[in-house]
């Protein structure tokens, strides 16, 4: 029964996104054309990947606010490596980005696991530290497109079957995440410890360790996105992806991921990301200043949280009623 409601919620969200696209295309017909749609998808790929990773963290009743800073730091590191030694193949840089991101995520997870510090405090702290390190590393300077190698910039733009590599990558990661969430023990453990940590202990699951893994995953994906971000926008500086962590949380919450843990799925997170992506891409099309973006995501988070709370509350009440009629 609930499954169908959750599914319905995703249908509802999909319907809203479609309606939005159609409404916008009335104003500006070019919006609906395939190249533009693909561009929107391409623009949203990074958010989609990160939203999925953030979802795992939120499922375990944690939150990762350091993803934006993680992107900036890994992005800066790979950009500097590239400008210093352009002959280094891109694949190596991608691996470095993944590894560095993993380490940064592991630091968050370590504090949450070993010292049981509230994740919000840890990631608020590391958010500042990581971003500060970007400044220290580059001494406050920018790395611009002309300092980056051809292949570094070209990699995400490589065209495969008419679709950019970044999009393919995003889809691949999302597919991997789906498999993880659905078909791996670790994925199910994310749900289990968020649902009932006490019961999880009975099943022999170490709650702290699973949280640690969620942070590692989130960090790793953020690292990957760090490379994509820098090469796609062809610039690396201190403030890139500032506030992006909020977008990832927003995407999750819009997609029905419960901030109290255990509820949510990849489909929802992706639709949440697409929702924000379409809004962001549509704003210039319908002549609204991009400065609206921030408050729109804020408002949408609040609406989504209220909506989630409402639907969660309802299920609570019906259980009570059932209990009563039996007794």
């Amino acid at each position: 029964m609930l499954n169908s409601i959750l599914k319905k919620r995703e249908y509802l969200l999909a319907a809203i996104i479609l309606t939005m696209i159609i409404a916008i295309s009335f104003r500006s017909p070019s919006f609906l054309q395939l190249p533009n749609m693909l561009a929107t998808l391409n623009d949203t790929s990074i958010l989609m990947m990160l939203a999925c990773a953030q979802m795992f963290v939120i499922l375990t009743r944690c939150i990762d606010l350091s993803v934006g800073a993680n992107i900036a730091l890994t992005g800066m590191v790979v950009a500097m490596l590239n400008s210093a030694s352009p002959e280094l193949p891109v694949v190596v840089l991608v691996v470095i980005a993944l590894g560095l991101g993993l380490i940064l995520g592991a630091i968050n997870g370590f504090f949450v696991w070993k010292f049981d510090i509230p994740p919000i405090v840890v990631t608020l702290g590391t958010m500042a530290i990581y971003r500060g390190l970007v400044f220290v590393l580059a001494d406050g300077s920018w790395i611009n497109a002309h300092q980056m190698s051809e292949s570094f910039l070209g990699f995400p733009r490589a065209n495969i079957f008419g679709v950019q590599l970044l999009t393919w990558c995003g889809l691949l990661v999302v597919a991997g995440m789906y498999a993880l969430s659905r078909y791996s023990r670790l994925g199910r453990q994310f749900y289990a410890i968020g649902d009932n940590p006490n019961a999880a202990v009975y099943m022999g699951i170490s709650v702290g360790k699973v949280k640690f893994k969620a942070f590692c995953l989130s960090g790793m994906i953020a690292g990957l996105c760090g490379y994509f971000w820098v090469s796609r926008y062809a610039v690396a500086y201190v403030d890139i992806a500032a506030g992006f962590e909020l977008q990832t949380v927003a995407a999750c919450v819009i997609g029905g991921v419960s901030i109290a843990g255990a509820i949510g799925n990849i489909g929802g997170a992706i639709l949440g990301a697409l929702f924000l992506g379409v809004v962001n891409n549509a704003l210039p099309v319908i002549d609204i200043s991009p400065f609206w973006q921030m408050s729109i995501s804020g408002t949408v988070i609040i609406l989504a949280v209220v909506f989630n709370a409402q639907s969660e509350r309802k299920t609570g009440r019906t259980i009570l009623k059932l209990k009563g009629t039996e007794a």
């Binding site: 901030i259 609206w292 921030m294 408050s295 609040i302 949280v305």
Partner: peptide, 16 residues
Amino acid sequence: LHSIIVTIATMSLFRG
């Protein structure tokens, strides 16, 4: 609602 998520959202809303 959870104050963490509420104030994260309003943080974005107010500055937005």
